[in-house]
């Protein structure tokens, strides 16, 4: 069974994607109001994410939700440099240093997110 992580693309991310292979994978949502790419992940990877970040859950659509912002930023960076494939997430999950950094940032995120 595979699940998905939806990476929403703001203007900055769209700029970074422009001209890359990833551009073809952009999905329009809600009549073009949002743009997103789906990152497919395995059941094992989903379980690992739920173990690492206890609030993570899989919604009725099969999307992995409630991942920390720091994780989504790291995943986007990895997808950008490694391509949208299984390895993009594996690079993060297998690197203790990256995980520690994400966890540290995630705990700060739990304390404060600057309002717009």
């Amino acid at each position: 069974m595979t699940y998905k992580i939806g990476l929403v693309l703001d203007e900055e991310r769209l700029k970074l994607i422009k001209g890359t292979e990833l551009e073809k994978e952009i999905k329009d949502l809600f009549g073009g109001a949002l743009k997103m790419i789906d990152v497919e992940i395995t059941e094992e990877q989903a379980k690992k994410l739920m173990h690492l970040f206890p609030r993570v859950r899989i919604d009725a659509r099969g999307y992995v939700e409630e991942t920390p912002i720091a994780f989504r930023k790291a995943l986007f960076k990895s997808v950008l440099s490694n391509g949208n494939k299984k390895e993009a997430l594996e690079v993060i999950l297998s690197d203790e240093n990256i995980l520690k950094e994400i966890k540290d940032m995630a705990s700060k995120e739990d304390e404060y997110i600057p309002p717009p």
């Binding site: 703001d10 809600f30 919604d59 991942t67 995120e109 997110i113």
Partner: peptide, 17 residues
Amino acid sequence: QRFSGSFVRGLIAEGIK
């Protein structure tokens, strides 16, 4: 195209209106 409360919360947390 479904949107759950958690999807909306994810957007808000990332600073996306």
